[in-house]
């Protein structure tokens, strides 16, 4: 992907609490390109990592408004202008009977945006990530908690970062490199 190979430190923890404390330490030390990997979303981790609030809602609201507007235009054009029909004594273009469809389109547009917006913000699907080169990392989806610090972080330093991580009492620390030749083996 990039010319510079990405390496990262991967620290492993037994409990959610230890992982949160480690994240707090990294945040306070000024790291930006670090992440926590936990089998489930851990309460309070967002604050511990210093993450801003998710912006996803601000994508969904305009999508919903788009849905309702497009629906309105569609029905207005099709039933009100292009092919007016009087049904049940109601005017060709009547607003009350539009409401169900306008509602459904609002929900449809919003839901699609919520899901694909989430994928976009998370940059998923993603074919490969160096973190998968770690053999231990498989338990991040099972019962272990990890902190990763990427070499792209300006504060990243092989010695200092390791020291900082060691101070958080991980059960294991490893340096994971992006070994391109082995990617096809380990990547999902």
């Amino acid at each position: 992907m990039s010319d510079k190979t990405l390496t990262l430190y991967l620290a492993e923890y037994e409990s959610a609490g230890a992982c949160v404390h480690a994240a707090e330490k990294l945040r306070d030390a000024g790291y930006a390109a670090f992440d926590a990997h936990t089998p489930f979303p851990v309460h309070g981790m967002d604050q511990a990592m210093g993450l801003p609030d998710s912006r996803l809602g601000w994508l969904v609201l305009p999508a919903g408004i788009t849905g309702v507007s497009l629906g309105f235009l569609m029905i207005w054009w099709m039933n009100g202008v292009d092919y007016p029909l009087i049904i049940g004594g109601k005017p060709a273009f009547s607003i009350p009977s539009m409401v169900p469809i306008l509602f459904e389109l609002t929900i449809l547009f919003s839901a699609l945006t919520a899901v694909f917006g989430m994928f976009g913000l998370n940059q998923l699907p993603r074919h490969h990530h160096p973190i998968f080169n770690s053999d231990r990392f498989a338990s991040a989806t099972d019962d272990k908690f990890f902190i990763s610090v990427e070499s792209s972080d300006p504060k990243f330093n092989l010695e200092k970062t390791k020291k900082l991580l060691e101070a958080t009492h991980p059960t294991n620390i490893e340096l994971v490199a992006d070994k391109d030749d082995e990617v096809s083996e380990d990547a999902p």
Partner: peptide, 12 residues
């Protein structure tokens, strides 16, 4: 409120 209105309006 809308359900009541719609049904009464529609059936007339």
């Amino acid at each position: 409120g809308f359900s009541q209105f719609l049904l009464i309006w529609y059936a007339g």
